[in-house]
């Protein structure tokens, strides 16, 4: 079972929910937690696992070999991302626009654009009491998150085969990163808050997940602030609300110290139990 914890709006509690659910579930089953918010992964703040493996991740971009080039300009004509430009007698490669499709490199008649490896950042795999935790962190200056997300998912597929529940802490929003992080998930749990902003971005996330034919449910955080429009929306749209967590100062205090909640706050534990029951009823296992 691959469960994506996503949201439209940032700061609704994806990480808090993902981490606490992972630890809660790890008491009874093998769980893998993947932090796919590679631009700013922060699940690790709440975990104290032991580093098992560290791996640098790369992606291939072409590098221009001036001496081999005959300046035919094919590379520039065929790049659909405008990442290769012919400027007079110079071929300029824009690595940040390159999607690593190899077209220019493969179709260059003179092999003047060999692919070279460009660092994206690091993947780190930790272990903690039956929980496998993997986070990937993008290097400063790297603009494209999707290759890092894809490689992190591939790593989990290959290296953490034993986990029967995979929880993904996804990036916020509805952009390419989110699509990559949720595309092959079995289920998406969308975290929101009961405010107009929360509802607006939730509806965008719902629309996105429906495009992907993804079954969804909602968790509502900080109930007590805002209004009940989010609940009315979910009812009207036929989206199950798996859990609602009351707005609670104690949660904020624990969170600010980087502590876990499921083992200290009753309402959180109840919520995790409700979510875990729902997951299990979906087929529980694989």
């Amino acid at each position: 079972m691959k469960l994506a914890i996503a949201s439209g709006k940032g700061g609704t509690g994806k990480t808090t929910l993902a981490v606490n659910l992972a630890l809660y579930a790890a008491a009874t089953r093998r769980v893998a937690l993947l932090d796919l918010d590679v631009e700013e992964p922060n699940s690790g703040i709440f975990l104290k696992g032991k580093l098992k493996r560290e791996k640098q991740l790369f992606r291939a971009v072409p590098e221009w070999k001036k001496e081999a080039c005959i300046l035919c300009g094919k590379c520039s004509e065929l790049c659909r991302f405008n990442a290769v430009l012919k400027l007079g007698k110079h071929i300029l490669v824009m690595p940040e626009l390159c999607h690593s499709c190899y077209a220019c490199s493969e179709l260059c008649p003179e092999n003047a654009l060999p692919m070279t490896q460009k660092s994206l950042g690091f993947l780190r795999h930790y272990e903690q009491d039956g929980l496998d935790f993997v986070e990937s962190k993008m290097e400063i200056g790297v603009e494209m998150a999707t290759p890092l997300i894809e490689q992190t998912l591939a790593y989990a597929e290959a290296e953490i085969a034993g986990a029967d529940l995979q929880i993904r802490d996804c990036p916020p929003g509805t952009s390419c990163s989110v699509i990559n992080a949720t595309r092959d998930a079995d289920f998406a749990l969308l975290v929101t808050e009961p405010t107009p902003f929360g509802l607006h971005d939730l509806s965008l996330a719902v629309e996105t997940m429906r495009h992907l034919d993804k079954p969804i449910a909602v968790a509502v955080n900080r109930v007590g602030i805002g209004n009940d429009d989010v609940f009315r929306y979910c009812e009207a749209e036929g989206i199950p609300v798996w859990a609602s967590f009351p707005h609670d100062r104690r949660v904020a205090e624990l969170y600010s110290r980087g502590e876990t909640l499921y083992d200290k706050v009753d309402s959180i534990r109840t919520g995790m139990d409700a979510i875990h029951t729902q997951i299990s009823s979906l087929g529980g296992g694989k």
Binding site: S76, R80, F81, N82, A83, L85, K86, L87, L92, M94, L97
Partner: peptide, 12 residues
């Protein structure tokens, strides 16, 4: 219609 990289293309 192009999502990315139109600036460099225009520069070209």
């Amino acid at each position: 219609d192009q999502a990315h990289g139109v600036g460099p293309k225009t520069a070209q």
